[in-house]
Amino acid sequence: MAEQTIFELIHLMDKVTNNLIIQWNKTFNEDLGVSHILVLGHLKKYGKSRPSDIAKALGLTPPTLTHLTEKIVQKNLAIRLNDESDRRIVYLGITDKGIDMLEKANKEGEILRKNLFERLTEQDRQQLLKIYTKLSSEKN
């Protein structure tokens, strides 16, 4: 087998990622993207959070997070909370409706994952997870 260039590898990785996003958008009919769900997941896992901390944790720019926040607040999936001791500090918190939406997204995600990875063996999936974990580590 001929050695692949880094560009061919990046292209293949992009194709898989883009396919996942396309499939997600076809099946999850809630007018929310993957990034919205990631923000809700962060809020559920860590509780109320400052938007700047969420942006940093998810690798998003502050303007991107502001855009995402507007939509999830508008849909009553999250709320803005003022700090009691310093009104200039604003937090985001997840609502019960946001938790329900996150659970729905996770169920849809499980179906997507199953459909995508069903052709891989368990060993293949574990190896893929190990590779992506290694590639995404911040020790680059």
Score class of each variant (00 low, 15 high):
62 P>L: 03
68 L>A: 09
112 L>C: 05
33 G>E: 15
136 S>G: 13
59 G>A: 04
21 I>Y: 01
76 N>Y: 04
115 N>K: 11
8 E>A: 13
2 A>W: 09
39 V>P: 07
19 N>L: 14
45 K>Q: 15
89 I>Y: 11
4 Q>W: 15
82 N>A: 10
56 K>C: 02
73 V>T: 03
116 L>V: 07
6 I>Q: 14
62 P>I: 01
1 M>Y: 05
52 S>R: 10
24 W>Q: 05
102 L>H: 04
97 K>I: 05
67 H>M: 10
81 L>M: 14
117 F>R: 06
30 E>G: 00
71 K>A: 11
132 Y>D: 02
138 E>A: 05
138 E>C: 05
96 D>S: 14
114 K>A: 10
94 I>R: 05
13 M>A: 15
2 A>H: 12
133 T>M: 10
87 R>F: 09
16 V>A: 15
114 K>I: 07
120 L>Q: 06
65 L>H: 02
106 N>I: 14
87 R>K: 12
93 G>D: 13
74 Q>R: 10
104 K>T: 13
64 T>V: 13
80 R>P: 03
21 I>R: 03
33 G>I: 06
38 L>Q: 11
98 G>W: 12
40 L>Y: 02
19 N>A: 11
48 K>D: 11
26 K>D: 04
7 F>R: 14
80 R>Q: 13
17 T>R: 14
120 L>K: 06
70 E>A: 04
101 M>Q: 09
78 A>Y: 06
53 D>L: 11
140 N>E: 08
46 Y>P: 10
32 L>W: 10
127 Q>P: 00
73 V>F: 02
23 Q>R: 15
7 F>M: 12
78 A>V: 00
43 L>E: 08
117 F>N: 06
106 N>D: 11
115 N>G: 09
100 D>G: 08
135 L>F: 11
69 T>H: 08
65 L>K: 06
33 G>N: 15
49 S>I: 13
5 T>A: 06
57 A>D: 09
111 I>H: 07
36 H>G: 00
